[in-house]
């Protein structure tokens, strides 16, 4: 069985899929900003379906803190039971989820920006990248786009809740990643440097 998890979006998403491509478990959290709380119960349910032979994990792009929850969980699990861990691009899952063949997958990146990647016949051609909304509009032009596309039409608004990753789509992408001879590493695709400002640095001392 392959265990798949993604915490790049607003909710943690977990799937377990058999080698015969049967979905054994598919579940999502229901609270935003609660990845550290809600991922583990989903993982327990998924692991009750069988012994995983590989793990696939979303490497973003997405909100940094949530993203790390899934990545560190996958890395630690893979190390503990000695199974391979593959990274998957969270935008690839969005593309599969919306049945995108040619065009763009888009996710809210906040701060008036979006994450996006371009696909041709379902294969990622370019990206992931982070662009201003207007820059993204220019790149996409009149090509098809899926995901948080309302952001592009209404640049002054945030996506309503944002696109939720579908665990079934995640399972499909995970199967491909775990069968790949050169999978992506289970490491974060932040696409942005950490914000470091002097005021933050000066008040950041803790514990």
């Amino acid at each position: 069985m392959i265990l798949a998890l993604d915490t790049a979006g607003p909710y943690p998403v977990v799937a377990a899929v058999s080698a015969e491509e049967d979905i054994l478990f598919a579940g999502s959290g229901e609270r935003t900003r609660a990845h550290a709380e809600d991922l583990a119960p989903l993982l327990r349910e998924a692991l009750s379906c069988g012994e995983p032979s590989a793990v696939a994990v979303g490497r973003g792009p997405g909100a940094f803190t949530g993203l790390r929850v899934g990545l560190v969980a996958a890395q630690t699990l893979g190390w503990a039971i000695n199974i391979p861990v593959a990274g998957v691009c969270s935008l690839d899952v969005v593309a599969v989820q919306f049945g995108l063949s040619d065009g763009w997958a888009v996710l809210d990146a906040r701060r008036d920006e979006v994450y996006l990647a371009q696909y041709q016949r379902g294969i990622r051609l370019d990206g992931p990248m982070v662009l201003s909304k207007s820059g993204a509009q220019e790149r996409i032009d009149d090509q098809p786009a899926v995901g948080d596309t309302e952001l592009l039409r209404q640049p002054d608004r945030r996506a309503r809740g944002g696109t939720s990753i579908d665990p079934n789509a995640l399972a499909a992408v995970a199967l491909v990643a775990c069968q790949s001879r050169s999978p992506e590493p289970p490491e974060p695709d932040y696409l942005r440097s950490p914000d470091v400002t002097w005021s933050a640095a000066n008040s950041g001392r803790s514990i």
Binding site: H35, A36, A40, L43, R68, L77, A80
Partner: peptide, 16 residues
């Protein structure tokens, strides 16, 4: 943001 990395690793290790 630092705490959740350890907490998530610990939970995953416990489950594994």
């Amino acid at each position: 943001g630092a705490l959740v990395v350890g907490v998530s690793a610990a939970k995953s290790l416990g489950l594994a």
